[in-house]
Write a protein that binds this DNA or RNA. Sequence first.
RNA 1: GGCGACGUGGCCAAGUGGUAAGGCAAGGGUCUGCAAAACCCUCAUGCGCGGGUUCAAUUCCCGCCGUCGCCUCCA
Length: 484
Amino acid sequence: MSQTIYNVLSREKETFKPISEDRVMMYVCGPTVYDNSHVGHAKTYVSFDVVVRWFRYCGYRVRYVQNITDVGHLLDDGEDRILKGARREKVEPMEIVERYMRSYFEDMDALGVTRPDISPRASAHVPEQIEMIQALLQEGHAYEVNGSVYFSVESFKDYGKLSGRHVEEMEAGRRVAVRDEKRHPMDFALWIKAPSNHVLQWPSPWGRGYPGWHIECSAMSNKYLGATFDIHGGGVDNIFPHNECEIAQSECANHTAFANYWMLSGTLLVDGVKMSKSLGNFVTIKDALKQYRSEALRLFILSGLYRSPADYSTAALDAATKGTERINTAARRVRAELKHAKADDAANSGRLVDLLDQYRMRFTSAMNDDFNAPLALSALFDLGKDLNTAIDEGSATRTVLEQADAIYRELGGDVLGVIQTEAKGNGAGSAEREASLIQMLIEMRLEARKARDYTRADAIRSRLAEIGILLEDGPKGTTYRIGN
RNA sequence: GGCGACGUGGCCAAGUGGUAAGGCAAGGGUCUGCAAAACCCUCAUGCGCGGGUUCAAUUCCCGCCGUCGCCUCCA
């Protein structure tokens, strides 16, 4: 079965053909680190995390590059975001960068997002950016004015091919005063002359200055992935001008195609409008994680297609929380049953093993179809229903349970990251010890119940509940789970 | 105004030219000292509105209405 990807370049689903057979070279636009990340970032990066995890599950070697923007990304008023952050917090610009880059990684780690293989920083690749700008100047795709360098959009006939815009049709500069220096209103900065008091500046052939925002992605993807690579990802909101500019710079400098497949994730809305730093309506990932566990956040994100918008609300997150509980309870039950599983016996076992294969195939074909995570999830939910029934009937043999456990670990855990694959503990040894202690208390409570000493039984239960361990009495005995 | 996307049950959300996945909520049941949880079952003749193509459309085409994103910084 082959992988399909909705390619924004063609606006169609295409069969994925990597440049090297078993290898995926992938770039995703990363954050500008001048403030805490919000749930909108989570949507984008969790989505691409699942793409990477899926490729790896399928046996591809993936090189995943995601930049860290720490210079050159300007605000409306022309001030660099990093400098604004530095002024706000009264620290060095690079302190802002370190602070929020660490914060970003903390958030991503908490969300279970696999770290990129390379997280190149713009400020650490100024020579590479200068080199690319020089190439563009030599080719006549760029021009210098007063120490700044601009890309000439008229020199690249394909400008607008990703976003479907045409230079002639755009009423550029209508709302923003165009810099007089530009030859064409749509031209964009490759290199910006720094005022003498500007804190971030580097020497260049055109005097002291700093790189424009777009050029870093072109220069760094070129360095780590090559002139042409497989997949370029990011949020749709950057399709114009950022992504369009990347294509223009790279294709003009390298004389070859840039990314073969463009995957853009849908915008996260809150109360129907975009969640963004500039609108101030954002929920930080740290705040969201105080309320919801990371599996719930991931499930919320993966409940819709990556390229569709999603609306953040407490109702949606509560529903996702319940959903993760349902799916994790089923997975936990399988693991618990496995401890005292029956040996295999012919017929039933075979039928159920076939059923499990079908679920794995359902999941696989969903993911192969442009990473349809919501459809893949539905397979896991249905699987849980069948397993519960099988366990109740006593037809779930060891082989069945082992394979079910493997599905949960590999597909729910490794690929989607919505199923906890191991007990959360403070350390390797302590988790096991904790489990034994809880088991001991459960047995003590059982003895109390047998003796009809319910006061004592309830006391054990409520004391455990106080420290977040919830006991649940079921037909087959008492189980527990760790609450939030 | 231009470009792009979308409108599916109470809410969220997949999907297909041949008759609607899944989650949440709701109702019923099982279990149970109590409680909580869990599990099972049920739940859209219908897919924004109006036309058209077709043996057949929610799915294709046209028009309309509405929502969102981008066009200026945002993942």
